[in-house]
């Protein structure tokens, strides 16, 4: 059940170039499914920021991993332990948890929601292979965290400073990864590449949003029939082939 709730910042640390990991104490944590997001009210800014939940630590703590892309997220990164932020969530339709092995494909700041997703698949006894792509080694995030969770992790970087030189698709080829079921989150060109190579799986989209709950129609995409789907409510996770990327 989505709710509006004040959360206490327990930590907010820089974990990569312009990327921060924030642990929040909130009762919303117990409600979050993998791939869902929360709307964060950054003090001094009007609209909330939609940020995916990276992982749920326990029923009162969740983790957000976010990149400072504008003034709002920059202000969020300046907030300190014990300060309060207001959350609205959990929101959206996340990744399905199916009883099968999975390849998780993440690009840049699309990697965070894959952590909780990996944990869910692994706890069900399934094998998880994570393919993570970044621009450079300096941009890499959550590689060790996914390994700690029990995922087999391979990496790619555009400049070759980490793992396979090239994209996540190059890393999938180079490592001979043949798992047919994919869950992906990352930039649109990456999702398009994933959707063109896999027929079975899901992609998580990013969008500028206002309400975050399906009312304003600010974040729509088209489905295969040309009908509008709301990234915030019908997504952010969509089955491959069901939406126009």
């Amino acid at each position: 059940m989505m709710q509006v709730n004040n959360a206490i910042i327990r930590s907010n640390e820089n974990i990569g170039k312009d990327v921060y990991r924030m642990v929040l104490e909130t009762s919303i944590a117990s409600e979050v499914a993998c791939g869902q997001f929360v709307q964060v009210q950054v003090p001094g800014f009007y609209l909330r920021r939609p940020i995916s939940v990276s992982e749920v630590l326990d029923e009162n703590h969740l983790v957000l991993v976010y990149k400072t892309v504008g003034e709002g997220t920059a202000a969020l990164s300046e907030m300190k332990e014990n300060e309060v932020v207001n959350l609205f969530g959990p929101l959206g339709t996340g990744f399905p948890v199916e009883n099968r092995d999975v390849v998780l494909v993440g690009g840049g700041v699309g990697v965070p929601p894959l952590v909780e997703t990996a944990k869910q698949y692994i706890s069900n006894g399934n094998q998880v292979t994570a393919v993570l792509g970044f621009n450079t080694k300096a941009d890499a995030i959550l590689v060790e965290r996914l390994k700690e969770c029990g995922a087999k992790v391979v990496t790619a970087s555009m400049d070759g400073s980490l793992g396979t030189k090239g994209t996540v698709m190059d890393a999938i080829k180079e490592n001979g990864i043949e798992v047919p079921f994919v869950l992906a989150c990352g930039p649109l060109p990456m999702l398009k590449a994933v959707a063109s190579c896999y027929s079975c799986g899901y992609v998580s989209l990013e969008a500028r949003m206002a309400c975050g709950m399906g009312a304003c129609m600010g974040c729509v995409v088209q489905d295969e029939n040309g009908q509008a789907k709301r990234v915030c409510k019908d997504g952010p996770v969509f089955q491959i082939g069901k939406v126009v990327l």
């Binding site: 800014f45 009007y46 609209l47 709002g72 969008a207 500028r208 949003m209 206002a210 304003c216 129609m217 600010g218 974040c219 729509v220 995409v221 088209q222 040309g226 509008a228």
Partner: peptide, 10 residues
């Protein structure tokens, strides 16, 4: 269908 996205800016 409405306009193309982005449709929202703060």
């Amino acid at each position: 269908f409405g306009n193309p996205t982005p449709r929202i800016a703060e």
